[in-house]
Design a protein around this nucleic acid. Structure first.
Lengths: 314, 314
DNA sequence: ATGAACCGATGCGGTTTTTGGATGGGCGTG
DNA sequence: CACGCCCATCCAAAAACCGCATCGGTTCAT
């Protein structure tokens, strides 16, 4: 007493048998196509008809014909079978990493230059890898990496986590952002001394710890003491203050793509010359199959066409 | 030596097991939901993973998690299962005649009045019955009924086929179509005598045998002999000639909906008073399940709303 | 540290389902 | 009217499946 199989449903095998029979209109040939003999094929189709409660094939000993319901079900069956194949294919592609989704955290500053280049690289080299973007500051990225909310982070040092693997993906120079009319604009290249006792828009110690500490270290090593007018965490806000003539700012060269009116940029000599570092970090035990393909992207040098496309868009 | 099961595919049962496990994230509960015990469910999922060559669930003894590939496959599996249910439902509806397609042949004249009313009835009383329309003359309809190209025909007598069932669906009066300025327009009602030795646009004996023979019979019985100016098969062509002032025409009242400028209509007394008959005919052994629902439509008296909708659209 | 509880995987015997050969029966064909 | 074609049915053998018992690994409480 297992109860009547009232909840029973048909199986794909029955669909395959039915499609074969409906296309051949001949049970013998259909069975051969299914690599079996005619009786079990008959039985599978009877089973299917019984489950549906519908006669799908009108069969006399002389001819096999589709009933109207059979015609409709044939279309549905084909669609289902097509879907099963594509589902298997898509899943296998995900599993091999050919396709998939990488959730990427990035800092606002990395979004100005490195990220667009990376996404262009992806479009041409790994079009089946989707990248879901989440802007967050470096400390949030570390936490999100641990909890698995993002697969990879683009963030600033220090990244002191043993369970992460890291990769330096960019080194940038610092540039000075100066308001229109600033006398230092007459120089082609500036040094840190140009900022001594001059008004400066500084990075906030909490929201932009990396830049704050880096600048503080550079100024101290150079024996220079600028006058901090205001501290901010977001580079675009700093540039807005520069435009207003409040003072100068030191920003990564990528910020030059922000194009603020009345704000001019000048290279600044520092030691080291390219002190702004951007790292990619990911959990060493991340099992996202698309990860390795994505890391290949990160490790690939940008190719000329990508840079061309990027330049053209600016 | 049947060879390795390289063409093997997964089965719906495995999908159902996987979806249950993926939703419960617990093999025991998933098994309970599937009305079975945990070991066979484990096996079904192993089998599925083996067929796909992809690990779908990461299971430790403490927790079950979906892999990235599993997440994708879960969506696909749900879609497939949803599709199987809707396929079964749709097929059953076709089989019971709740839904389906009726291929309907109709004469041009029946398309002016009876067919629109029928289609409006269908829209409100049997919205799931699709009607595929094919205009053809009565003799073509008979042939198409025999070969099964149409399920039902709307045609003119005589229908002398023993394998058909027929139903009279409309009786219409004849009306006179007269050109602007015709003296007979002063009469409210005409008789056949008004056409004696008058120019008349007549039906062609080959293309419109029914109307031709009917008119010939009516005139002969009334002892009236009009002057045939031109013979045509299509009513709208005849009305065009009427408008041109070539002569009068006798048409079924349904043709009044054609609205030709400068063509006026007047009732004509005949014996019998409504000599234009329209029949539905279908093969008695037609097995289209939607047929009975469609025939119910034909047998239903038009309800007031339908007639209102029809009147409003004219 | 240790034992209890939990969970999924596996081995195994019994049952159900499926398979394929043989056969039956209806229906056109020569 | 006999023959051939074709699908349905019967039946024994094979395969698949199920459930029970159990194992190994992890977590949690003691």
């Amino acid at each position: 007493m297992t109860g009547p199989s009232f909840w029973s449903q048909f199986e794909l095998r029955q669909l395959r048998c039915f499609v074969a029979a409906a296309e051949e209109l001949h049970f013998g040939r259909a069975a051969a196509r299914m690599n079996m003999t005619q009786p079990p094929l008959s039985r599978q189709i009877q089973l299917l008809e019984h489950v549906l409660g519908v006669r799908l094939l009108d069969r006399t000993s002389r001819a096999v014909k589709l009933t109207p319901a059979g015609r409709v079900f044939l279309l549905e069956a084909r669609r289902i079978l097509r879907l099963t194949e594509s589902a298997a294919l898509a899943t296998r592609r995900i599993a091999t990493g050919e396709a998939g989704t990488i959730t990427l955290g990035f800092t606002a500053a990395s979004g100005y230059s490195f990220l667009p280049r990376l996404l262009l690289q992806r479009a041409s080299h790994a079009p089946n890898i989707d990248v879901a973007l989440k802007e967050m500051v470096s400390s949030e990225q570390v936490e999100s990496l641990v909890t698995g909310r993002i697969d990879v982070g683009l963030l600033r040092p220090p990244i002191a986590r043993s369970e992460f693997t890291t990769l330096k993906v960019a080194e940038e120079h610092l540039v000075a952002a100066l308001p229109m009319g600033d006398p230092r604009l007459s120089e082609a290249t500036l040094t840190l001394k140009h900022f001594d006792r001059q008004p400066l828009i500084m990075y906030a110690a909490d929201g932009a710890r990396y830049f704050h500490d880096m600048l503080a270290g550079l100024f101290e090593a150079a024996g220079v003491a600028p006058v901090t007018i205001q501290s901010l965490a977001q580079i675009h806000s700093m540039l807005a203050l520069v435009r207003a003539g409040i003072g100068a700012a030191l920003v990564p060269e990528a910020a030059m793509s922000l194009h603020f009116d009345d704000v001019q940029f000048r290279p600044v000599e520092t030691n080291p010359p390219a002190p702004v570092e951007l790292y990619a970090a990911w959990r060493s035990d991340n099992d996202n199959p698309a990860l390795s393909a994505f890391l290949d992207l990160l490790r690939t040098e940008p190719d000329p066409e990508t840079l061309d496309a990027l330049a053209a868009s600016e």
